[in-house]
């Protein structure tokens, strides 16, 4: 009996995440691929599924039109894509630069303080991100809190235009994604054995050398994990540029939105998303695969 329980428990622990992944990650992805090869039409739902179980059995009629259309108007999609990748890249960079010292400081604090600091890092997740963005708008507006204070203190006469600029977008991005960078960095830095650092210092290494030759290389897994966690969702980010950005910043997220909502073309929207996944995810998967090959 005990044996069975143990066996069942083990199976449960292994299979539960797998079932979860298949249900909520693989199936939606497969459905999206299916929609991207479907034909748009005015109906509920607004496409003719490429693959479906109908009353007359299984039908499979994929069309490549959606991908051909993107190919035909590639210029309309290329610039938003470059914008999105640029936004994601710099957001990741700023997050990394800010998060590294924070994570280091948390990892080197004593245990009770560490717990409090980690809660503080996670705390923003307890408020809706939309609310946090509106709070930021209240701070950055021409008639907002920061400008009011600066004018009142006599530093400036006319309000500084902070909203609808790169500054406001990156403020929002960093505000939203910083915890995703701090946590993996912290996890790798906290495991770092302080006796190694002490040994290096005893042998006369300067602080910068210790950082470059010991701390940084040992925290590379944390940096990679953090950068992936920030970069991947940042590429598709829609809400933050829409709320905080001006007209110049047309992102791929918004382009997908217009295909979906304005052209009512769910298949083309799905096709763009699939291409984006292919461009962003596949190189990462490939790099990880190469990495493993190299090690073995």
């Amino acid at each position: 009996m005990n044996y069975f329980l143990q066996r069942f428990g083990r199976l449960f622990v292994i299979w539960l995440p797998l079932v979860w992944l298949i249900l909520f990650f693989m199936l939606p992805l497969i459905e999206m691929i299916n929609v991207s090869f479907s034909e748009a039409k005015r109906a509920v739902p607004p496409y003719n599924p490429a693959f479906q179980f109908g009353p007359d059995g299984i039908s499979f009629q994929p069309v490549a039109d959606n991908y051909l259309l993107i190919y035909k108007y590639w210029e309309d999609y290329l610039w938003p894509a470059i914008n999105s990748i640029r936004l994601a890249f710099f957001s990741t960079l700023y997050c990394l630069l800010l998060a590294y010292p924070m994570a280091w400081w948390i990892a080197r604090s004593n245990k009770p303080l560490q717990h409090i600091l980690l809660i503080l890092v996670l705390m923003p997740f307890w408020t809706s991100s939309l609310l946090r963005m509106y709070a930021l708008i209240g701070l950055l507006n021409p008639n907002g809190f920061i400008n009011d204070i600066l004018i009142w203190a006599g530093f400036i006469v006319t309000p500084i235009q902070m909203m609808q600029t790169d500054f406001s977008i990156y403020s929002g991005m960093v505000l939203s994604y910083l915890p995703l960078m701090i946590l993996p960095l912290y996890a790798s830095l906290v495991r770092l054995d302080s006796s190694i650092i002490e040994a290096a210092a005893d042998l006369g290494a300067r602080k910068l050398d210790i950082f470059k030759t010991i701390i940084l290389p040992l925290s590379v897994p944390g940096i990679i994990a953090g950068c992936l966690l920030v970069f991947i969702p940042a590429v598709g980010e829609f809400v933050i540029p829409a709320l905080l950005g001006g007209p110049e910043q047309l992102m791929l997220g918004k382009v997908i939105w217009t295909e979906f909502f304005r052209n009512r073309d769910w298949p083309v929207a799905a096709a763009i998303a699939i291409i984006l996944i292919a461009i962003i995810i596949l190189p990462i998967v490939y790099a990880r695969y190469q990495d493993k090959e190299g090690i073995s």
Binding site: R42, P80, L250, T258, E259, N263
Partner: peptide, 19 residues
């Protein structure tokens, strides 16, 4: 119709992107 929708969206997106 769907074709006009697409023209409208394309013109609009170009305006948004500024080119």
């Amino acid at each position: 119709d769907a074709k006009t929708d697409r023209i409208v969206t394309r013109v609009w997106n170009r305006f948004l992107a500024g080119n």
